[in-house]
């Protein structure tokens, strides 16, 4: 993971976060918010975008300051940088929509301890130029949002029969006769759906590798 060389093409740096090194499905980072906020699609968007903002801003800062932060106190410095941006996001969301803020609960503030952000600061941003660090952060942020949506869509569709519930754009999927699977919105549903999706992605990756291998052999 830490072996990126200065010559990695920019496009690859960007795309890596989406698929090959997807923070949730492959690296298993940031599981807590992934499980906790994905019972509604709206929450997934809010959480994904907030995390992406913090990720991009703190990657930029860490990368700019990479030659000035002494090695011994780097983790503490990164955490202070991250906490500053999280505080900003926290106040912004509170002022935009109080409902959204209430339904995300403490998880906005808990972005501070999201391992994806600290992990990228340590593994990538502290060793690369600002432009590349931002690119990597945007890729990882999108990968995180994508993973949240994968879970959120399934959980809300099965658990409530809708998409984008609690917004003006609410879509009802199955009509009035649909009996919601309450379990999907409750905590166990989060564990089950994530477990099954990781299973599915493992299977897909295995199939793709096999096909590439057989194509190369033929």
């Amino acid at each position: 993971m830490n072996m990126q060389e200065k010559t990695t093409p920019s496009l690859e740096v960007f795309l890596r976060g989406l698929w090959q090194e997807n923070p949730v499905f492959v690296m298993l980072l940031g599981m807590c918010p992934t499980l906790a906020v994905t019972n509604k699609v709206v929450n997934c968007f809010a959480m994904g975008l907030s995390a992406m903002f913090v990720l991009v801003m703190s990657s930029l800062m860490v990368s700019l300051l990479r030659n000035y932060i002494p090695k011994q106190v780097r983790i503490a410095s990164y955490i202070v940088i991250i906490a500053t941006f999280v505080t900003i996001v926290d106040y912004v969301i509170q002022s935009i929509s109080l409902d959204l803020y209430d339904s995300l609960g403490a998880f906005i503030q808990l972005i501070v301890v999201n391992c994806i952000i600290l992990g990228r600061a340590e593994a990538f941003a502290s060793r690369n130029k600002p432009a590349k660090a931002v690119l990597d952060a945007v890729g990882m942020g999108l990968g995180f949002t994508f993973a949240l949506l994968c879970l959120g869509v399934v959980r809300e569709a099965l658990g409530n029969g809708t998409l984008l519930m609690d917004t003006p754009y609410e879509i009802s999927l199955f009509g009035a006769a649909f009996e919601p699977w309450a379990i999907m919105i409750l905590p166990p549903g989060g564990f089950f759906v994530l477990g099954l999706q990781i299973l599915f992605f493992n299977w897909l990756r295995k199939k793709l590798t096999q096909r590439n291998a057989s194509a190369a052999g033929a």
């Binding site: 298993l28 549903g189 564990f191 089950f192 477990g195 099954l196 990781i198 299973l199 493992n202």
Partner: peptide, 22 residues
Amino acid sequence: PDIAQGAAITLILAGILSLAFM
């Protein structure tokens, strides 16, 4: 099974445990 090793099976177990705690 091969593909379920590690995180996938652990999460599904956690789901069952969480169901019990409900």
